[in-house]
Design a protein around this nucleic acid. Structure first.
Lengths: 241, 241
DNA sequence: ATATACATGTTGTAAATACAAAATTACTGT
DNA sequence: ACAGTAATTTTGTATTTACAACATGTATAT
């Protein structure tokens, strides 16, 4: 733990996990943390703000800081990587039936990935399994010149990890959600009938500079694996419905 | 604008909107903003951090702060209130076929909303339309003692607005996504066949203290209105896939 | 007893300063 | 001309101080 701030967040998270701080309970004031850790109040506040943003704590002006009562879901939360997320939930992830192909960008792909038409792209198709049951068919595209050395072996493991070594790393994504009947050729691979409804998630992933590097269509067998997402009201606006 | 910090975020957002700062372009350094606004560097950093968290800007240590190239979607982004979001996107929202009923909490509802079994709940059913086309059937529950004066008129407008007056306001939510074939009785109301796939979103909404106050099932006709969500990698972890 | 005023403790915002870490730029010696 | 070094600029982390805004408890006056 190199940061003083991170030491404080870790301390609080541990205390919550070990039930030394219970949901709804008030935790020490900012000045008390200053004394406890021999740090300035700004450092304490940064640590607390981080946990507030995650929904772990909440503050009330003039009263204090409290532990949220938000329950932690044990289900599948997407968006932060399939393999990692599955392992964290205690599932066994695997990848099957991988194909990679070099193609030329058509109008739609060029538009989405902000490359020129006919630019070289990797087309990757993968079936992701949880406990050996196929749960998602991924059909996605990467920009060839960012990853000329892609292989099936890499694609079976983690393309994101491979790209990270080239300083291409995930920062945020826009997801488009739709319910559709599973296309026939995909239904076969997912071991379901083509009358089965699937959750189609279109994902456009960006680097921190806002440049897209990965576009994909993910067909989830959502009755095998319902997806969970958390949203936060960052701005504290009062919401009209 | 009462906050100095908010004045700076507004200034930068306006400059981006008016194309005075373009995507990928570097913006003035933190010290320059200090001189421009006659504020301390901490205030500037708080303003910038807020925009970085939203994905509007990104920073590079030792280089500077830049405008993201992330495109802004004109489609429907859920999670921040149906009416508000629709209006912002230039759609015309409306609510139809509202029913409200007093019921007693069964085991499942009591568990979700953290109330006792047989506690009084409002059961609300609504059909939400965009440009007069039904897009979502909402079947949800509120805790009676938090809102004893609920009426059909209020439910046709905005229950969240009504609750906000009682200091019950949305802070965050957990959403569960699934693709299903539309149940018959709901398909009728949505003017679709019961063989039509719909996006089922289960929403559990919390106040800032982490106590749930609203549980609902939302059946989206997602080919009429695909949902868009944005996710961010707050922790800057390197992601395995 | 009740209401008012005050003191105290808490979070919120802001300033001024210092040094670390990383990238760029300018300089300098060969 | 080129490589290496130093200076400069930039963001990252942290300290110290000050006051504002809000909530709560206590003492006081009526």
């Amino acid at each position: 733990m190199t940061n003083k701030k991170d030491a404080i967040t870790a301390y609080i998270e541990n205390h919550i996990q070990n039930k030394l701080y219970s949901p709804g309970q008030i935790i020490p004031s900012e000045s008390e943390f200053c004394r406890m850790f021999h740090v300035s109040r700004m450092t304490v506040r940064k640590a607390l703000d981080e946990l507030v943003a995650q929904g772990v704590l909440y503050k009330e002006k003039g009263r204090g800081t409290f532990v949220s009562q938000k329950p932690r879901y044990a289900s599948f939360q997407c968006g932060y990587g399939f393999k990692q997320e599955a392992l964290r939930r205690g599932f066994v992830p695997s990848t099957k039936a991988v194909t990679i192909n070099l193609i030329k960008a058509d109008h739609e792909l060029a538009d989405k990935l902000k490359v020129e038409i006919n630019a070289a792209l990797w087309e990757v198709k993968r079936i992701r399994c949880i406990n050996d049951i196929p749960v998602v068919y991924v059909h996605e595209y990467y920009i060839y010149h960012q990853c000329e050395d892609l292989t099936i072996t890499i694609a079976a493991e983690s393309i994101y990890d491979h790209l990270a070594k080239k300083n291409i790393s995930f920062a945020f994504a826009d997801q488009r959600l739709e319910a559709i009947l599973c296309p026939e050729e995909i239904a076969n691979d997912l071991h379901i009938s083509d009358k089965h409804p699937v959750l189609l998630m279109s994902v456009l992933a960006y680097m921190k500079n806002g440049v897209p590097f990965n576009y994909g269509l993910e067909y989830y067998v959502s009755d095998q694996l319902p997806l969970i997402q958390s949203i936060y009201n960052k701005n504290n606006h009062s919401l009209s419905e």
